[in-house]
Design a protein around this nucleic acid. Structure first.
Length: 277
DNA sequence: CAAAATGTTGCTGA
DNA sequence: ATCAGCAACATTTT
């Protein structure tokens, strides 16, 4: 489920479901998922606590508790399900939060890549390893062409890999980065430092456009069953992702699939021409 | 059966 | 030191 629009959608759904409801019990079925403490300490910290607010930073979900902060990353397949007390767990239910009224919040994750961190303070969260390297939020005022230009200068790795690494702007993943580069007419293999000013401007604008539209549609649902969270409809507006051999919406040329930084990458060789020195 | 799948991270060698 | 490339994490699906 998880690029920025899906995480934003999950956040909005959970805000309606679990805010200010006392957590009476917590079960961790897969301990390695708790990254910065033992599972039983995590349980102790979470039990008899309450989620006061939920925010998002990049693809991270931040649960602001009455006492402490819970950081949750869905990675590839993490999902939350808020269910009645009689709903049974599945083989992929790894963490269970039970509320005072018996309702339960299941964290499910078939590949078990998701992570949980508990922090006592906002300062600890901000100084955490994975938080420090994060670039700006795509909807923040600081996300401008001059900022991106400065960050890209002298970088030699492909623009696609650069946008995926979260250090310049946070929230793009493998689907949306392909869609952004297509709309910005930038070849995914272009060395990051070689984008023209106009291309940088286009990447910044299309990042905002694509992510805003995807949030509006509550994210993209592909390859998974409809779930109560993040079952959005942006898949209907994808122009290149998973459309190998289908005609480009602009020029009818068949969409290409290549590999960039180990990730499946879709683009139109005509609309996104390769740069030459 | 091998490869790939909405992601990050830690290691390795330049 | 910095950076780029790649295996690793674990499971299901094509």
């Amino acid at each position: 489920m998880p690029e920025l629009p899906e995480v934003e959608t999950v956040k909005n759904t959970l805000l309606r479901q679990i805010i200010k409801k006392p957590i009476t019990h917590v079960h961790v079925n897969y301990a390695p998922m708790i990254k910065n403490m033992e599972a039983d300490e995590f349980v102790a910290r979470m039990q008899n606590n309450t989620v006061q607010d939920i925010s998002r930073r990049g693809k991270h979900l931040i649960f602001h508790l009455a006492d402490g902060i819970l950081l949750s990353h869905l990675r590839m397949e993490g999902k939350y399900f808020y269910v009645d007390s009689d709903v049974p767990q599945t083989t992929h239910t790894h963490v269970v939060f039970t509320f005072e009224d018996g309702m339960q919040l299941f964290y499910e994750d078939t590949r078990k890549f998701g992570t949980f961190h508990f922090y006592e303070t906002e300062a600890q969260l901000q100084s955490s390893k994975s938080f420090q390297m994060l670039g700006v939020e795509p909807f923040a005022a600081e996300f401008t062409a001059p900022y991106v230009k400065e960050k890209l200068s002298h970088k030699k790795k492909p623009i696609k890999s650069t946008l995926l690494d979260q250090t310049i702007v946070t929230g793009l993943g493998n689907i949306y980065v392909d869609e952004v580069l297509y709309r910005a007419n930038v070849h995914p293999l272009t060395p990051a430092g070689q984008l023209t000013d106009a291309q940088i401007e286009a990447v910044v604008n299309e990042t905002k456009n694509v992510l805003a539209r995807a949030i509006e549609l509550k994210g993209t649902t592909i390859r998974t069953f409809a779930s109560q969270h993040g079952s959005g409809t942006y898949q209907n507006e994808l122009r290149v992702h998973q459309r190998a051999n289908e005609p480009c919406a602009t020029c009818q040329t068949p969409i290409q699939k290549i590999k960039v930084g180990g990730r499946g990458t879709y683009f139109c060789e005509v609309c996104q021409p390769e740069v030459k020195e």
